[in-house]
Simulated scan of single mutants.
Amino acid sequence: MRSRAFGRTGRNVGEIGFGAWAIGAAWGKVDDAESVAALHAALDAGLDFIDTADVYGDGHSERLIARVLKERGGERPFVATKAGRRLPQQTVEGYSADNLEAWIDRSLRNLEVEVLDLVQLHCPPTDAYYHPEVFERMERLVERGKLRHYGVSVERVEEGLKAIEYPGVASVQIIYNMFRHRPAGLFFRQARQRNVAVIVRVPLASGLLSGKFSADTRFEADDHRQFNRHGEAFDVGETFAGVPYEVGLAAVEKLRPLVPESATLAQLALRWILMDEAVTVVIPGARNPQQARANIAAASLDALPPETMDAVARIYEQDIKPYVHQRW
């Protein structure tokens, strides 16, 4: 797998990583044995970047990662986690020095390490990006050796643009996929100019871009694709990338003819993301070894031809853009 420079950290990472939300919670039933096997399969295939958060399964995702890495030994992958969503209500005041340190200390215990590779503020309120003291607190934690780097996970392009004005922000995690094009404009250009790593999440639009769903698909009650359809629990953009389900299904049918021979729609969607050099790493989830290996195989697809890129752009403009473009 090809590697890309992780911003100005001095680290390189493979361009496809492992998104560990689904092995924690909120995606229906979780099978720990399958989750562990998926992580092992991904690492066996050369993956070296894992993204998690302290709230995924209330720390369960972090602890599973620690278990797998302890079993394997040897060189550790780059493990990114997040902090901030443990607040009962999202306020700027909640990102206090005491709270940040407490969350980070908990992640240190969960991941069984003495220093965290990367801690991302986990989709804090927009106003937080206009409070330099929040970022100064992260700087102090770097100085004290609790984390090597810090970044942000954002909902909106505006937040990403504001975050990269802070010189200590090493990375921005953002939603970008065939149903969410806006980050590829001004934000990607600015991130490249400032040498900030870009982590792409929700690359398959919560599975819509796998092409495996239909109007008859039913999701479990504890799956966010069921309980967050309209943003009831968190930002609706995290579920199906904010695209109405039926609209997404119709657009998927237009994308199917673009899939290269011997590839899948999901692999096409991942390769499409990697066509932009501003992307550092994309983090699809995997709940079993087969999914993990299939995700990584997308990196070996040939570059997509201009006609495929143009076709994706047309489908976005005609079918998807009115629902999402100006919202995020």
Rank of each mutant, 00 (worst) to 15 (best):
F234E: 02
V79W: 02
P257A: 08
V236R: 12
G151K: 07
R218L: 13
L255H: 04
P88H: 13
G57S: 03
E232N: 02
A292D: 07
D222A: 10
A26V: 11
A191W: 05
Y95D: 12
I199S: 08
Y150A: 01
Q267I: 06
E246G: 08
E34N: 11
A53N: 07
P244L: 12
E317W: 04
V36Q: 11
A42T: 07
G84W: 14
T9C: 09
V113G: 09
I273N: 08
G151F: 05
G73S: 03
D31Q: 07
Q173C: 06
F219R: 06
K212L: 13
N110T: 00
Y130H: 13
V152K: 04
M275E: 12
E220S: 12
A33Q: 11
G14Y: 15
P306S: 06
G14K: 15
V79L: 02
R189A: 15
Q173T: 09
P77T: 07
E165H: 15
K254W: 11
H60Q: 07
A66H: 01
G19K: 04
V259S: 05
A286D: 02
S300V: 03
A45Q: 11
A42M: 02
D44S: 09
R85D: 13
A221I: 13
L274I: 03
V312W: 01
L141A: 04
D48R: 13
F234Q: 01
R287P: 02
Q120Y: 05
L186F: 11
A278P: 03
S262I: 04
G57V: 05
